[in-house]
């Protein structure tokens, strides 16, 4: 008997870290990703790094997306990547968006942030890039065996 193939959707955590008080941008992104067929776990505002990492691990997401509007993206990226590593989840790719200036993109990448989306990036492009990132990762994903 053949077994049905269940194609798992790409699961993304959308989070905002720190005191930054509005989440319009994060909600817009969450909705757009849902419409593109993603499973979006939305954790809301004012998350700590520890909360983001705990949620990513429990939900076993394929990608963590951080939406950031205050100027602390370096600090957040460094702490987040470090905490992920410590928690045995260093393989979960992190992407960032919000209002990050162009000059900061390369340094963030060098730190290990998988992708940075500049303000005004078309949603279709974000979707395409996330799909690429997720599929790269699926090669590494554990396969069940009998």
């Amino acid at each position: 008997m053949q077994s049905p193939r269940t194609t798992r959707r790409i699961k993304v955590l959308v989070a905002k870290v720190g005191l930054d008080g509005h989440d319009r941008g994060a909600k817009v992104i969450a909705r757009a990703l849902r419409d593109a067929g993603f499973e979006v776990v939305y954790t809301g505002l004012r998350q700590t790094i520890d909360q983001v990492v705990a949620a990513a691990i429990q939900e076993d997401v394929d990608i963590i997306g951080i939406n950031q509007h205050e100027g602390s993206h370096f600090h957040i990226a460094r702490k987040l990547l470090q905490k992920l590593e410590e928690s045995g989840a260093g393989d979960i790719p992190v992407v960032m968006g919000g209002s990050i200036p162009l000059v900061d993109v390369e340094p963030l990448r060098a730190m290990g942030v998988k992708e940075v989306f500049l303000p005004g990036t078309p949603i279709a492009e974000i979707v395409k890039r996330l799909e690429e990132i997720a599929s790269e990762r699926k090669h590494l994903a554990p396969r069940a065996k009998g």
Binding site: R9, A30, R31, L33, R34, D35, A36, G37, F38, E39, V40, V41, Y42, T43, G44, Q47, T48, D50, Q51, A54, A55, Q58, E59
Partner: peptide
């Protein structure tokens, strides 16, 4: 089946995440 979803329940329970 055809579309994705936003899982928002977790938002109300995040205080327990850690």
């Amino acid at each position: 089946i055809s579309s994705g979803s936003i899982m928002g329940d977790r938002l109300r329970m995040q205080e327990h995440a850690t």
